[in-house]
Structures are given as structure tokens and as C-alpha cells.
Amino acid sequence: MASLKQLSSKKELLTGGHRLCAGCGASIIVRQVLLAADTPVVIAASTGCLEVATTIFPYTAWRCSFIHCAFENAASTLSGVETAYRALKKKGETDQDMRFIAFSGDGGTYDIGIQALSGACERGHRMLYVCYDNQAYMNTGIQRSSATPLGAATTTSPAGKVLPGKTQNRKDLTEIIAAHHIPYVAQASPSRWNDLVSKAQRALQAEGPSFMNVLSPCPRGWRHPPNESIKIAQLAVDTCIWPLYEVAEDKWRLTYRPKQKPPVEEWLKTQGRFAHLFKGNNQQVIEQLQAEVDRRWEELLEKTS
């Protein structure tokens, strides 16, 4: 692992001047992942905040080659790039060592794009797929996704007189991808940059598909001040809402163990999307969420022990 000083002197492939919001997790995640790359890369992104904010014609914020095709197909699009690379290598038209990285939000990954991702994992393309999980469809205006946690208010799971925000638990996508038994799967947070960059390095070294699910705070959707994004991401890690672990060659390993495990309430109260849970009879939703987080954390401890 390179030092922060070394990393900071590396040429960044995502330039400034793009139009992502202040405090957006996505650009921080992209920059951390790309710092791990030691070869030229080609990026594929699905339709979403990152794509629309970095490629407004006639400008591009990408210093490397980049392709956006559609919403649900970042994985199959990148499969095509990686396939072309193998074809050209076979013909002797390139001997350049390259890596292929997809960036997609939770909408493009957990929901509409899960089929393409699953197919690409099974076929074994050598590529890294990074989900920047901001826990809802933020680009279209904060609609719920299968990554949205229980109780969160979104524009399609609003808190109302009878419903306390989203009534379902979130899908555990990292474990779903781990079940594909690909060489490398990890969950990371931009608040632990060294952990994230190391994971990206291991993912890029893997001789096959690799996947990283990274929590991506969204000040607009989560309703918190932009300067608190990283703090809130770390609180998600510490409360075990978002545990940091990796599955390398089917070996499960916890990469960070919180010293204390504060109650989920500590994380919930940092964000406006959960404000309604602290009113009326919604305390039980917090209890349900705590029980679910505890249960999944215990399961993870068992898998990683």
C-alpha cells in the first residue's frame, strides 16, 4: 500500500470541474479506486449521477477512455470492452497491460443491472465492477431502491400518516455477488481510504471478475450537510450498518472491526431521511432495523471467523 503522500502525487484520471454535488461520495470513491490502478484503464459507467455530471457534451472530466451505454448494462458493456481487448491481444495488435473498471450506482447494480452483472461474473471477464451505493435512485430524484434501508424516506417510499418510509430491508448485494465465487469481492467505505484503495488494488490484481460495493453518502438524498459525508460514512461502518470485509478466493475476512458498536440510532439521527423515525410511534422501526443489523453482523462474524 502506497503512502498518502505517494498517492497524492499520482495523476488523477477524474479531473475537477465536473458537476457532481459538493459532498457527493461518488467522485471521492472513483478517485480512490483509480489511485489503485497502475496500468491504463477503460471506464464504463451506467446512467446515473456520475455519468451525467462528468460527461456533459462537449466536455468530459475523464482523462482516460470512458463509455456510457445505458442504465442497466455497465457490466455487459464492460464485458464487450474486455472481450475486444482479448481479441486484439490474440491478434497481436496490443501488448499493453490494461484494466477495465465499471462504476454504477445502486440502481444500476442492485436492481435494473443485476442480471448483466451476474452474467458478467459467471462468464469470468477480468474486470472490476464498483457499485457506489447511495441507497436510492438519486439521479432521478431520490426514489427507493432495493439498497434503501428500512425506514428511509424517499420520494417513492415517503413517510406519511400510515407508512414510516421504506417498509422493507435492503438487499445484501455483496453477499449475492460473493455467491458467484468470483476471485474477489469486497465492501468498502470512502471514510477508510486506505482500506478502500488496498481493496481496489487486490481487486485489480484478481485474475477474473472482481466486485466492490462502496457506501456513497448523498447529501441531497440522505439530507445531511455536505461536509459531513465522510463522518456519516464512518458512522455507518462503526454501527455495523456497513461492515468492511472482503471475500478473496472464497475466504471471508473482516478488514475493520469497530472498537465500539454504537446503536444504529446514532447514524440515523445524522440524516433527514430518517427524521420521522424519531417521531410518533416509529421507534419500533428503529428497533427492527437494529435487530436486522445485529443479526446480519453476527452472521458476518461467523463467516469471517
Partner: peptide
Amino acid sequence: PYTFGPLD
């Protein structure tokens, strides 16, 4: 480097 599929 090329950017394919920009917001237009």
C-alpha cells in the same frame, strides 16, 4: 482517450 455516450 475517448468519452463515448456523453450527456448530450
